[in-house]
Design a protein around this nucleic acid. Structure first.
Lengths: 338, 338
DNA sequence: CTGAAAGCGCTTACAG
DNA sequence: CTGAAAGCGCTTACAG
């Protein structure tokens, strides 16, 4: 691979001038630019980014950290982020992290190694953010969880209001006449600021307002956000609370798994058991029956997140914390009773 | 962020010695190592990877190129690759490319910028590989498509035999008594070595052997590998060939979309229309009814691909081109008739 | 508009 | 075992 020195020699200009051509500076004569560009094209020269970044404070691309593979919801956001970045001619590389990994440690490492211009977190553990985000010095955005509790001007967040969304889900079931409702949620160990607590609290609040009884021990089970674990959790719930007529699942993947388990146990959806999920992933429009859900506006989250990040990269200012409106999608999986 | 120079000053040693400690060279006294490590820990020093890579030919991590977002099958492989890499203490970053992008151009750019030790392609256009893979000088693996036609010792490939898998899918339908079979495949424009041609040829071969009539014009429609396009294609197929009793879809995503379309048109699956897909994604075990499919062994592809790549990084040798066995999963979506 | 030169943060023979 | 120095491939004031 030729270096800038080779290009200089071959074109008859100095490496300084070659560098100016590469970086599109204007103070270059047309003749020099033409000659140098010709040599570059013919030689297949690619500037060494390590050397470039070593000199420039100017940093490289944007890095996206995705917490947990196998999460269709985050992958949906990821895809939309890529689309928006592309529209701005920006590119990004993606690092997938285990649920158990500390995303801030990973980010610090990448920050030191690659000097990204901006970082995007899809999913994240609030404990990690609160404890160590201050060590990060790159503009960042957290998507899908609220980070207003993290005290850093470098961080923005865009998320659905889990409490309100969950309240709405419970309300749909109650207003369809259901009074014996089970909930399949995430794990409480994800922390008080995680997804599970607010989603549980929102539903419970709604139950209280409508005077619907709710006993955590019998009516709530925990599950990972996957189809197979959703199935298992549904079987546990059915055993503990067989008289239920409706179930609220904290994610659509859980709902898909639960529906499978209900059918396998001989119940029909929605004739015997009504079902509502959370997220609004595309699958819910293809299941039979279609699954009701609380649709998070992934497109808005991606778009707002990208716009905010790119703006703050160019014009530093404090991050913001926005709630993105959700939409209640009531579909065939809910039966009106009573 | 402190530099190696700061660490040298603070520890009282030279930057050369600090460098040796960082890189675990043995020729350092215990005293020096202890003192320097202490300063590094206290200062939170992280070596600048750009500077490091500038000097060292030694390259950075592994880069994975994924062709097309929204491809559950490739995402499944991607997840398994990450798991295997982690077991080897290796990490990777992922670049998502549009269907339309040239993955080899993208790889050349990344190669020049980051000097990865190895590259993994999930999906790819054989035309691009054949035309320009020779410009790549990093060990690479193509997963999910056969690259034996690409003349380069640096490339291995691991893929399912599309022709045989497709033959098997057609055979399952025929042996269940079906004689009026439609096919929803990909686009022929993906090239003669793409997915569509061999998958079509395999099925047609099977039809011929069993003396089943097949007219491309009426019995075959093209679709992208997505649920929504699968639905649209299924409606077109139903219009052209309403007397069909079974459909072979070239991907599970198409099958899921097609099933939705059939139900919406008032047909039942499998009572009126039997269905078999291709890929074996997890979701086919949760649909109602469960969808029959040709399961590609993503786990084996990922494992073999990683092992081969890591070996060839350490011990350069010619790449290999392997076919990974598939499995016929005949499920509830197929009805035996006649 | 162009060139010569300093320097980015590191690694690594070369001496000692 | 340790230090001084050259050099990796680039960018960017500084002169002219």
């Amino acid at each position: 691979m030729p270096t800038i020195k080779d290009i200089a020699r071959m074109s008859g200009y100095s490496i300084g001038t070659v560098s100016r051509v590469i970086n599109n500076h204007r103070d270059v004569s047309d003749a020099a630019r033409a000659a140098i560009e010709k040599v570059i094209a013919e030689s297949g020269f690619q500037p060494n980014a390590n050397a470039k970044h070593l000199k420039q404070t100017a940093a490289s691309a944007i890095v996206i950290f995705v917490k947990g593979t196998q999460n269709v919801f985050l992958e949906d956001i990821l895809e939309k982020i890529q689309t928006h970045l592309k529209a701005y001619q920006e590119s990004a590389s993606v690092i997938f992290l285990d649920e158990a990994d500390n995303e801030i440690s990973a980010a610090r490492k990448i920050e030191a190694e690659r000097h990204p211009r901006g970082m995007i977190f899809l999913g994240g553990n609030m404990d990690h953010f609160r404890r160590s985000f201050s060590e990060i010095s790159t503009p960042a955005v957290l998507i899908s969880a609220d980070a207003s509790g993290v005290d850093s001007p470098l961080l923005s967040s865009f998320a659905t209001d889990d409490y309100e969304g969950s309240y709405a889900a419970a309300k749909v079931l109650i207003e369809s006449g259901h009074r014996r409702i089970g909930i399949i949620g995430g794990h409480m160990s994800w922390g008080p600021e995680g997804i599970t607590s607010p989603r549980l609290a929102g539903a419970v609040k709604c139950f209280e307002e409508y005077g619907i009884p709710f006993d955590l021990e019998t009516q709530f089970v925990s599950s990972r956000f996957s189809m197979d674990d959703g199935s298992r959790a549904a079987r546990r719930l059915l055993k503990r609370y067989p008289e239920l007529t409706a179930v609220f699942c904290h994610s659509d993947m859980i709902a898909i798994g639960a529906m499978r388990a209900f059918i396998d146990s001989g119940r029909r959806v929605p004739e015997d058991i009504s079902l509502i999920g959370f997220d609004g992933i595309e699958y819910t429009r293809y299941t039979i029956p279609r699954i009701a859900t609380i649709r998070q506006d992934t497109d808005a989250m991606a778009k707002r997140g990208i716009d905010d990040l790119l703006m703050r990269i160019s014009y530093p200012r404090d991050g913001v914390h926005e709630r993105i409106p959700f939409e209640v999608i009531a579909k065939e999986s809910i039966r009106t009773i009573g």
